[in-house]
Design a protein around this nucleic acid. Structure first.
Length: 288
DNA sequence: GTCCGGTCTC
DNA sequence: GAGACCGGAC
């Protein structure tokens, strides 16, 4: 198997984007907040929200002192608002279980609300410089192509971590760069559609290229339409609650103009079930 | 209209 | 292991 690491490291040195969370001394809390926001939201939309969030809550303890409602409001339109609730819970857990310090151990990070395999290792590696494989969807695609000769990765699996681990050099600092470089290459060059293979630092050793770029199929499910969906209904209800500021909204006034009353009620129920809204005496509000 | 994505719940 | 979940960019 070819050694991809040196080519990745050299390419990253010249091509990495200058992103805020990559600045030296950005801090583990900043890295953790950025990773929460980046879990489902593109870089360009995250940056202004990240700056504002960290200015308001520069430490886990500061966020833990705020209410969940404040966190959901500040999350604004980043999408998937459960992440705001989870980030707030994680801050409370960090205050209560780790004396306000973002933990360094992967198993302790995994035990925090909203942190899974990717984020736990991203914090341990990018904030603390430890030696672990970090695998996101970009890395999985790079490895599927360069190593397995497949156009798209298969379903996520624990094997992904072992595959990335096998590529990492022994030195922790260099292995962190290799992790970051694989993700960055997948984001900028080895993209899902329209990959820029002529610019790729791995082209000389890429199994997919060697095989003639076969279309090996794409197992990803097509996303359902957003317009008219339950998701859109939830978004509309939550937007109204955010904009009501500190106030509760009479249930009958919640998304009153939504065309499908049953769908609106489903949205309200699911938001309450997720802890994103509270129903009190015929009114709906963000969680205190 | 189509695409992007990590974690949770069941 | 499968399905739910957001909103903006293109």
């Amino acid at each position: 198997m070819p050694d991809l690491a040196p080519a990745l490291v050299a390419w990253y040195r010249d091509n990495a984007r200058d992103l805020p969370w990559r600045a030296p001394g950005f801090g583990a809390w900043g890295v953790l907040v950025s990773e929460f926001m980046l879990q489902q939201t593109p870089v360009n939309r995250v940056i202004p929200h990240l700056d504002a969030w960290l200015a308001l809550w520069p430490t886990p303890a500061a966020l833990a002192k705020a209410s969940p409602a404040d966190a959901v409001r500040q999350w604004a339109n980043l999408g998937y608002p459960r992440r705001a609730l989870w980030l707030h819970r994680a801050a409370v857990e960090i205050r209560d279980r780790h004396e306000g310090i973002v933990p360094r151990q992967v198993d302790q990070l995994l035990a925090l609300t909203g942190i899974g395999d990717y984020t736990a290792r991203a914090v341990a590696v990018f904030a603390y410089g430890d030696h672990h494989p970090v695998v996101d969807t970009n890395t999985r695609r790079v490895l599927a192509r360069a190593i397995d000769g497949q156009a798209q990765p298969g379903p996520p699996s624990r094997r992904d971590l072992a595959a990335m681990d096998a590529l990492l050099p022994a030195d922790a600092a260099t292995s962190a760069v290799v992790n970051a470089a694989a993700m960055e290459l997948g984001a900028l060059v080895c993209t899902a559609r329209g990959p820029r293979c002529t610019e790729c630092p791995l082209r000389a050793m890429c199994a997919w290229r060697a095989a003639g770029y076969p279309d090996t199929g794409d197992t990803r499910r097509r996303q359902a339409r957003y317009e008219g969906s339950d998701r859109q209904a939830r978004g509309a209800v939550l937007k109204q609650l955010r904009e009501a500021s500190e106030h509760a909204v009479p249930i009958d006034d919640v998304a009153a103009d939504w065309p499908d009353a049953l769908q609106r009620d489903r949205a309200i129920d699911s938001l309450v079930a997720d802890g994103l809204a509270e129903a009190v005496r015929g009114e709906l509000r963000l969680p205190r």
